[in-house]
Simulated assay, not measured.
Amino acid sequence: MKKVTIIFLIMFALIFSACDSETVQKEDGSITNDEKSETITYESENGPVEVPANPQRIVVLNSFMSGGVMALDGNIVGIDEWSKGNPRYEKYIKDAVEVSDESLEKIIELEPDLIIVPSASKNIDKLKKIAPTVNYTYGELGYLEKFLEIGKLLNKEKEAQEWIDDFKKRAKKAGEEIKSKIGADATVSVIESFEKQLYVFGDNWGRATEIIYQEMDLKMPEKVKEMALEDGYYAMSPEVLPEYAGDYIIFSKNPDANHSFQETDTYKNIPAVKNNRVFEANSKEFYFNDPITLDYQLDFIKKSFLGE
């Protein structure tokens, strides 16, 4: 009888010790095996998906969602080509492998526990067999709603909402200061070069358009409103750029594109050009509208318009 009691006490002590050890690990910020196996139900655009409550190895093939994952400290092990080439993302994904929805074997080798893809992805059904897969359709959500959805997906909705609230305050304040300086009726155009084509943008296509037009409520030229607002962008030749140029121009400039049009009289005679009111940014770090990019864009706008 005594022998049975002693064995029972030893077993109890071992169990208690294991539980206590698990508690210490949590206090140190590590994640226990139990936590790793926990799941949450995420309501995706295609219905509920069971995903890890604390994903450890994330593959992101959706370039318009990748920055949101980085902003919430998601560990990205596989990343799409566009995101991989963004200088603003470099420190977040220096160890991530470039993959696509066709490099299935490479993705399997990465052992992801969560995959994020665009809805147009070809191999969604195959990716679902590798790990829980969530897809997003560009344009279905507002630019800040997208980040909130990533917050929900990564079980960090509170952190995402706090950032959104703070960002809106900062952007609104800067917008009021800019309007006070340049005048409430001054217009701003956002253009971009790509190969031999120029584009002008509406209010929801990255390139700081969401900040300028939605948050700061700066004015869009009428011609831009007519041609680019509905679709989000409009392709044009350099010869007609003066028709779309605002009092100020933000030029998302592709370093690999041909910019000979800037040497023409047509360009040089645009009032914004003559008055030194063209602000150039590297398009490769200016495309997107995630928190990392938005913070950079807001700083760029403040520096350009206010000298801050």
Rank of each mutant, 00 (worst) to 15 (best):
E45Q: 14
T41M: 06
I79L: 13
N33L: 12
E38P: 10
M70K: 03
V60Q: 04
L72W: 04
L14P: 01
E43P: 03
E50H: 04
D20I: 05
V69Q: 03
L9E: 01
Y42R: 02
K26M: 13
F64P: 00
N33M: 11
V49N: 08
E35Q: 15
S30W: 05
I76R: 06
I10C: 02
A53S: 13
E43H: 08
V69E: 08
C19Q: 11
A53K: 15
F64I: 03
C19E: 01
V69R: 09
D34C: 03
A18S: 10
N54K: 15
E50P: 07
L61W: 10
P48V: 09
E22C: 06
S37D: 14
T32L: 05
S30Q: 11
G74C: 11
P48R: 08
S63Y: 13
G78T: 10
S44W: 08
V60E: 04
A53R: 15
E35H: 10
L9S: 06
T41E: 13
E50W: 09
V51C: 07
T32I: 11
I15P: 00
E50D: 15
I40S: 07
I58Q: 13
S66K: 00
T32Y: 10
M65C: 06
K26Q: 13
E22V: 09
Q56P: 02
G29K: 07
G29A: 07
D20W: 08
F8S: 11
E38V: 04
V51D: 03
P55K: 07
N33Y: 09
S17W: 09
N62C: 03
D34L: 11
E38K: 15
S37E: 15
V24T: 08
L9T: 09
L9W: 02
I7C: 00
G68W: 00
E43L: 11
R57Y: 09
V49Q: 06
T23E: 13
L9A: 11
S66F: 00
E45K: 12
C19N: 14
L72T: 06
C19G: 14
Q25L: 15
I79N: 01
K26I: 14
A71T: 04
A71M: 06
D73A: 04
A53W: 08
M11N: 03
A71E: 07
E43T: 05
N33R: 09
I31S: 11
T23W: 03
F64D: 14
F8K: 01
I10Y: 01
D73E: 14
E50L: 11
S63G: 01
V59Q: 03
T32F: 04
G29T: 05
S21K: 13
T39W: 01
C19R: 05
E35Y: 07
I40Q: 14
N75Q: 13
N46I: 06
N75M: 02
F12G: 06
T23G: 01
E22P: 00
S21G: 03
T23V: 11
L61S: 00
I31H: 14
F12W: 04
M70F: 12
P52C: 10
S44T: 09
N62M: 02
S21M: 12
I31K: 15
N54V: 14
L72C: 05
S37H: 08
N54F: 07
I7K: 10
S21F: 12
G74S: 10
D20N: 10
G67T: 01
N75G: 05
I10Q: 00
A71D: 10
I79M: 06
F12E: 04
E22R: 04
G78A: 14
G68M: 06
F12K: 02
